[in-house]
Design a binder for these strands. Structure first.
Lengths: 332, 332
DNA sequence: CTGTTAGCGCGTTCAT
DNA sequence: ATGAACGCGCTAACAG
C-alpha cells in the first residue's frame, strides 16, 4: 500500500509540526482549541489513519495479543476465543489467532512467530505439552494459560477443576448402577484429559472398583476419532455398560459407533460427554455432560492478561472454574 | 518488553555491520560462509528474533491479514476460519481475528482497526450490510469476500451457489409430493438467506406453485429462534407438509417445535436444513440438508487473497461452491 | 502552547 | 563480499 497520508502530510497541511498532530491524536499535552480543530478537520478530510506499525515501533507496545488454541473449529475453543476477542476488542487490543492443529510441535513455532510480531501478551489454551523449553518460551511474554499443564507461579491461569468434573460424572454413572465404565480419555498429553481421568479413577476406587487399563482409550478430541476409539473400546470390552467421554465431540462419535454396532443408547450403553457445547442437547438422545462457561473463561483470561499488562506484578493468580453436571437422556 | 537483542547487537558480537546480519537473515546477497556461520551461531546463542514491527515499517509489508466474521462461535464460521488460518500460516501470514458480534455497525469499525494495523489484506465473511461506504472502506485493501452481498468486479469472492442449493432442496421436497412448503428464511439481510429463498421461489414456480408470503418466516440462525419461528409458521399455516430451513441449527429448532406440537417428522411434516454441520446426522430423525465445504472455502479464500497480494492484478475472480444435497430421514 | 532533536529496529540504496 | 548513510512513520524528551 503506497501513497498513504502520513502524520507529516497532515502537519504540513495544517501548518504545524508533526508533534502537534501527534498530541491531538493521542490527547496528550495541551493544544489550543483552534489548532486542534484545524488538525482534526484535516485528518477527517484526508482520511488519515495513524500507522499502528510506526506507533508500535516508537512506543514498543503493539496493542495486540496472541491467542493460541489447538483447533478453532472445536466448539470449546471457538466459544472461548469469542470471549477473548470480545474482551480484547473492548480494551483496544487486536488478537492474532493461532491454531496449532493439535500438533504439539507447532506450539513452540507459533509462539515464536508471536514473538516476532511483538505481541504485548498471549493467552495460551490447551497446550499439549509442558516441556521446560516451552515453558521458557512462554516466559518471554506476559502470558495467561488456560486448560493446560503449564501451571506454576510464573503464570496467571484459568483452570477448570477437571478432577472434580471427572469424579462427579463417574459417580453419577456409578449411581446409575454401572460398574464397568469405559473412558475415552482424549489426547494423552492433555491437561484436561489427565485431570478427568484422575477423577474417574478416584471415583471408581471409592466405589471399590479397580479401573482396568483396557477400559481406557485415548483419542484426539474430534467426532471421527471418538467414533473409531469407541468402536475399538467396545469391540474389545463386551462388559462395558457405560462410557465416559473426554468431551462432547468424542461422545457424539461414540454414539455414532454405538449406532453402527447396533447398540442402543442409553439402554444398552450409557454415554456421557464433557463441556456441554450448544449441540449437546440437540443430539438424540441428548447428552449427559459437564458444563463449562467457555465464553466467560475467555473473557476472564483476557482480563487476567490485561491486569498483568498494566503494571501490577501479579503473576501466579489462578481462577478455578467448577464444572456443573448436566444430566440428560444419554446417561440418566 | 525492554532489553531485547537487536540486529546491531548481533552485528557487534559478530564484528560485522548490521547489513551483513540482515543479509543472512533474509538470504539475500552474498555472504561468505564463515561470517554466515558466525552470525548464525550468535543468533542462536542470543535468541535473537527480528522484530516484525521494524521489518514491516521498513518494507511496508506486515505479513498479516485480517479475518472478519460475524461470530466465531458459529460452527460455519469457525470451520471457515480454520481453513483461512491454516492456509495463511503455511504461507507465512498471521491472521487477526475480528468478530463483529453480528452487529452491522461494527463491520466498518473493525475494518478501520485493521487498516491501522496495516494488514496486507482481508478476508471478509458474512457481512450483514452492503452499503456504499462499507464497500469504499473495503476497497482500501486487497480483499476477498465470502458469503455476503458485497460482490462485484472490485473483489475476489468465494460464493456458494445458494440459489442452486435452494432450488435443489425445494425440488427434492416437491419430488416427495409436497406442495405447501414453508421457508424459514434466516436473517433478512443475509446473503445466503436471500439466495436460498430465490432458489426456493424458482423451484416452486417451475412446479406451477406460487409461493405464498405467509409460508415464509425470518429468524436469526440459532436453534431457539428457529424453534419460535417454526411454531409461528405452523400455527398460522395448517396446510404445510414440509419446511425448508435456513440452516441446520434452525432446522433442529423446527424439529423441536414439531415435537412439542405433536407433529411427527417426517410423517406429518418434513424438515430440511442447510450446511450439514457435523451433528446433522445425529439428531433423530437425521437431517436432510445441503453440504458446504466450509474449511475448504476458507482455504480457497486465503489462496485467492494470496494471489491478489502477489502481483497479478486479478480482481473480480469468483469461485463458486456448489452445495451438495444430502438426503436423510427428516425429508426422504 | 508549540517546535526541535533524536531515536525505535530494520531494509534499501548506494559505495567500497 | 561488506559497510555507511538514509528513511519507513511515529513518539519521547527537551527546549522555548
Amino acid at each position: 500500500m503506497a501513497g498513504r497520508v502520513t502524520i507529516s502530510d497532515v502537519a504540513k497541511l495544517a501548518g504545524v509540526s508533526s508533534q502537534t498532530v501527534s498530541r491531538v491524536i493521542n490527547n496528550k499535552g495541551e493544544v489550543s482549541d483552534s489548532t486542534r480543530e484545524t488538525i482534526l478537520s484535516i485528518i477527517d478530510q484526508t482520511g488519515y489513519r495513524p500507522s499502528g506499525i510506526a506507533r508500535s515501533l516508537a512506543t514498543s507496545r503493539t496493542m495486540t495479543i496472541g491467542l493460541v488454541v489447538p483447533d478453532i473449529a472445536n466448539p470449546f475453543f471457538s466459544d472461548l476465543a469469542r470471549g477473548v476477542e470480545i474482551a480484547a476488542y473492548e480494551a483496544g487490543y487486536k488478537v492474532f489467532l493461532c491454531g496449532t492443529d493439535e500438533e504439539p510441535d507447532r506450539e513452540e513455532a507459533v509462539l515464536g512467530s508471536l514473538e516476532s510480531a511483538r505481541v504485548d501478551g498471549v493467552v495460551v489454551c490447551g497446550l499439549r505439552q509442558a516441556s521446560d523449553t516451552l515453558r521458557a518460551v512462554l516466559m518471554q511474554f506476559p502470558a495467561v494459560t488456560s486448560v493446560n499443564l503449564i501451571v506454576d507461579e510464573s503464570f496467571n491461569c484459568i483452570l477448570t477443576d477437571d478432577a472434580a468434573g471427572g469424579r462427579t460424572m463417574t459417580q453419577h454413572l456409578l449411581a446409575g448402577g454401572h460398574r464397568a465404565i469405559g473412558l475415552l480419555a482424549g489426547p494423552e498429553c492433555s491437561y484436561s484429559g489427565l485431570g478427568r481421568r484422575q477423577g474417574y479413577s478416584e471415583a471408581m476406587r471409592m466405589a471399590g472398583i479397580e479401573p482396568e487399563e483396557r477400559w481406557v482409550q485415548h483419542c484426539r478430541p474430534m467426532v471421527d476419532e471418538g467414533e473409531a476409539a469407541a468402536r475399538k473400546l467396545l469391540e474389545t470390552n463386551s462388559d462395558l455398560t457405560a462410557i465416559f467421554c473426554y468431551n462432547d465431540l468424542v461422545a457424539v462419535g461414540a454414539m455414532r459407533a454405538c449406532k453402527s454396532m447396533g447398540l442402543r443408547v442409553p439402554d444398552d450403553i450409557a454415554i456421557a460427554g464433557y463441556d456441554d457445547i450448544r449441540l449437546a442437547d440437540l443430539v438424540t438422545p441428548a447428552l449427559t455432560t459437564c458444563r463449562q462457561p467457555r465464553e466467560q473463561m475467555g473473557i476472564s483470561a483476557f482480563e487476567l492478561l490485561f491486569d498483568q499488562l498494566n503494571g501490577e506484578e501479579n503473576r501466579g493468580k489462578k481462577i478455578v472454574i467448577r464444572p456443573e453436571l448436566i444430566v440428560r437422556a444419554s446417561a440418566p
